[in-house]
């Protein structure tokens, strides 16, 4: 509350410092992005499968989903889900004659919102990945007597991963940055903590700069990690 604190004291780990809060916020940011990535992968894979299917209505649903999610601001998706989720849950439960479940916590709605957007982009990546393996190779693997597991492990996955990892790394970066939008639900992730700290100490520059540094650490560390995985992935694709 005291505006006379020095910058090290404001960002420190002491009783009046916001150091711990900022770091915990960065941890929560990471957690939201991870959960969103997982949700987006599952839904994205399902959407890619739907778009590759022969059923017209499945293809249409997947295409419409992609169109809407890529055409509407992420902020609106977060707001929509945050305000609308409890009602939707109650509505779904009502269809099955169940009592309305409790409202989901902000973490869940937030990561679901980011995950729903992420899914639209991940579906595109997976669709491209599925085209990466020519039919002939699969037929050749079958002719060589490989079972489905061996085919997946030795033929399909290495090539698909090689194709899919770089764009997935990109989407992960977007998830990480989009998680800042979850701050509007009041979840104390990095953006929210820095805004609260900036408002209550009235030292906005200090806290937004600190948050930028923490975001940069998160994004550059994870891009280094992805590069490492990619290097390993290309070794596999190189056919060891």
């Amino acid at each position: 509350m005291d505006a006379e604190l020095s910058v090290p004291a404001l960002l420190g780990l002491g009783a009046d410092g916001w150091g711990w809060a900022l770091m915990a916020g960065a941890g929560l940011t990471l957690a939201v992005a991870l959960a969103a990535m997982a949700i987006g992968s599952m839904l994205g894979a399902a959407l890619a499968a739907a778009e590759a299917s022969r059923r017209v209505w499945l293809v249409r649903i997947a295409a419409t989903y992609g169109l809407v999610m890529r055409g509407v601001p992420e902020l609106l998706v977060v707001l929509l889900l945050y305000f609308g989720a409890p009602g939707m849950l109650a509505g779904v439960a009502g269809l099955f004659g169940l009592p309305a479940p409790g409202s989901p916590p902000a973490f869940l709605t937030g990561s679901l919102a980011i995950g729903l957007v992420s899914a639209a982009y991940q579906a595109e990546v997976f669709r491209g990945g599925m085209l990466a393996v020519p039919r002939g190779q699969i037929e050749a693997a079958m002719a060589a007597g490989m079972g489905p597991v061996a085919r997946l492990r030795r033929v399909i996955l290495p090539q698909v991963l090689h194709h899919v990892l770089p764009p997935l790394g990109n989407i992960w970066q977007f998830n990480l940055k989009d998680s800042a939008l979850v701050s509007i639900t009041g979840l104390a992730e990095l953006m929210r903590v820095s805004l609260v700290a900036a408002g209550s100490t009235r030292r906005p520059f200090v806290f937004f700069a600190a948050a930028m540094v923490l975001y940069l650490i998160l994004t550059s560390a994870s891009s280094a990690l992805f590069r490492m995985i990619e290097r390993r992935g290309s070794r596999w694709a190189g056919g060891r």
Partner: peptide
């Protein structure tokens, strides 16, 4: 590219 646009907007406007 490494920080959220929302944070950049707050940084310019308030910071």
């Amino acid at each position: 590219r490494g920080t959220p646009l929302l944070l950049q907007i707050f940084m310019v406007y308030y910071g």
